[in-house]
C-alpha cells in the first residue's frame, strides 16, 4: 500500500493535476528531510512554533512579567533555569514568551510585505509602460535605502511599539518582492497560455488575480523564508534600541538591551535571549537555504 503510494507520488507521468502537485511536494519534502542542514532548520522553526503556541505551558506557569526584587540578577539555578533579570523576572519564562512576540512580528511582516510586493510588481510587470517605469523607480529608491536606518526613522516617527515596528520593517522590506514579482510577471505575461486567456476575452484584473499572481506566489514564498532571519534580526535590533515592544512585554531584543549594563558581571541576562534570536534566525536561514536548493538547484 505504502509502496504503491510512493510510486504514485514519484511518477514521471502524473495522470492528474493533483498527482503532479502532490508528487512535487513529496519530492521537495524528501529533499528537505534528507538534507541535514535543512532538516535542522525545519526542526528549529517547528520548535519555535510549538514554543510560541504553548508558551504558558512550557514556561511552567511562571509569569514572564512577575517581578521579584529580592531575587534580582540571580544566576541560573534550579529555581530560575536561565537566571533572573534586573527586576527579578524569570529569564526562562521571558525567553519562552518572547517566542510569541518574535513569531507575531515575523508573521505580520510577511502578511504586509507579500501583498504590497505582489501588487506593485505584478502591476508594473503586466501594465508596463510608464506605470512600470514609475513603480520600479520608486522600488529602486526604497531599495537603495539602508534598511535599518530607514526602519529606525519610521519607527521614530510612528512612535515605539510592536505594531509600528512591524509597519516600519514592512515599509523597508517590500521592494525585493516587487522586483521578483515583476520579473516573473513579465515572463508569464508573454507566455502563450496568457495570450489564450486574453483571446477568450478575460479582463485584465481577472488575468492578474487568477493567472499571474498565483504563479508568482511560489518564488515570493521562498524569498520570504530566506528573509525571515533578516526580519527577525531587524526586529530584534529595533527592540534593542527600545523602538520595538515596550516594557514589560518580553521581547528578545529588548531583553538583550536590559542586560547590557550588567554584561560584565551578570552575563546571562543578555546572553540567553541573544542566543534565542541566533538559534531562531539560524533555523530560518538553514530552512531557506534548503528550500532554495530544492527549488533552484542551479544556485546550490
Amino acid at each position: 500500500m505504502t509502496g504503491s503510494l510512493r510510486q504514485w507520488l514519484a511518477s514521471d507521468q502524473p495522470a492528474s493535476r493533483r498527482q503532479a502537485v502532490l508528487g512535487n511536494l513529496a519530492r521537495g519534502a524528501k529533499a528537505i528531510i534528507t538534507n541535514p542542514a535543512a532538516l535542522t532548520g525545519l526542526l528549529i522553526v517547528i520548535a519555535l512554533l510549538i514554543v510560541a503556541l504553548f508558551a504558558p505551558l512550557i514556561a511552567g506557569r511562571i509569569s514572564p512579567i512577575a517581578q521579584d526584587l529580592a531575587a534580582r540578577l540571580a544566576p541560573p539555578s534550579s529555581a530560575h533555569w536561565f537566571g533572573t533579570d534586573e527586576l527579578g523576572r524569570d529569564i526562562y519564562a521571558r525567553t519562552v514568551h518572547g517566542a510569541r512576540v518574535t513569531l507575531t512580528i515575523v508573521m505580520l511582516v510577511a502578511v504586509f510585505v507579500a501583498p504590497i510586493g505582489l501588487a506593485v510588481g505584478t502591476a508594473a510587470g503586466y501594465l508596463g509602460g510608464w506605470v512600470d517605469a514609475l513603480l520600479m523607480r520608486i522600488t529602486d529608491i526604497f531599495l537603495a535605502f539602508p534598511r535599518l536606518v530607514l526602519a529606525l526613522a519610521f519607527a521614530a516617527a510612528l512612535g515605539p511599539g510592536i505594531e509600528n515596528a512591524v509597519i516600519a520593517i514592512s515599509l523597508t522590506a517590500w521592494p525585493p518582492y516587487a522586483r521578483i514579482a515583476r520579473a516573473e510577471t513579465v515572463t508569464i505575461a508573454r507566455s502563450d497560455f496568457i495570450a489564450a486567456v486574453v483571446l477568450q476575452g478575460a479582463a485584465s484584473a481577472r488575468i492578474l488575480f487568477r493567472h499571474i499572481v498565483p504563479l508568482c506566489l511560489s518564488s515570493v514564498i521562498v524569498r520570504l523564508t530566506l528573509d525571515m532571519a533578516g526580519i527577525i534580526l531587524t526586529a530584534a535590533g529595533l527592540g534593542f534600541l527600545g523602538l520595538g515592544a515596550q516594557p514589560p512585554t518580553a521581547e528578545w531584543g529588548a531583553m538583550v538591551s536590559s542586560g547590557r549594563d550588567v554584561i560584565l558581571d551578570q552575563w546571562w541576562v543578555a546572553t540567553i535571549p541573544g542566543l534565542a534570536i541566533f538559534i531562531v534566525s539560524l533555523g530560518f536561514n538553514l530552512l531557506g537555504d534548503g528550500l532554495r536548493d530544492v527549488l533552484d538547484p542551479k544556485n546550490a
Binding site: G237, G253, A270, T271, F278, N285
Partner: peptide, 12 residues
C-alpha cells in the same frame, strides 16, 4: 554570521 544579532555578538 547571517544569523547572529550584531548587538548581541558585541556584548558577548
Amino acid at each position: 554570521g547571517y544569523s547572529m544579532p550584531v548587538f548581541w555578538l558585541g556584548l558577548v
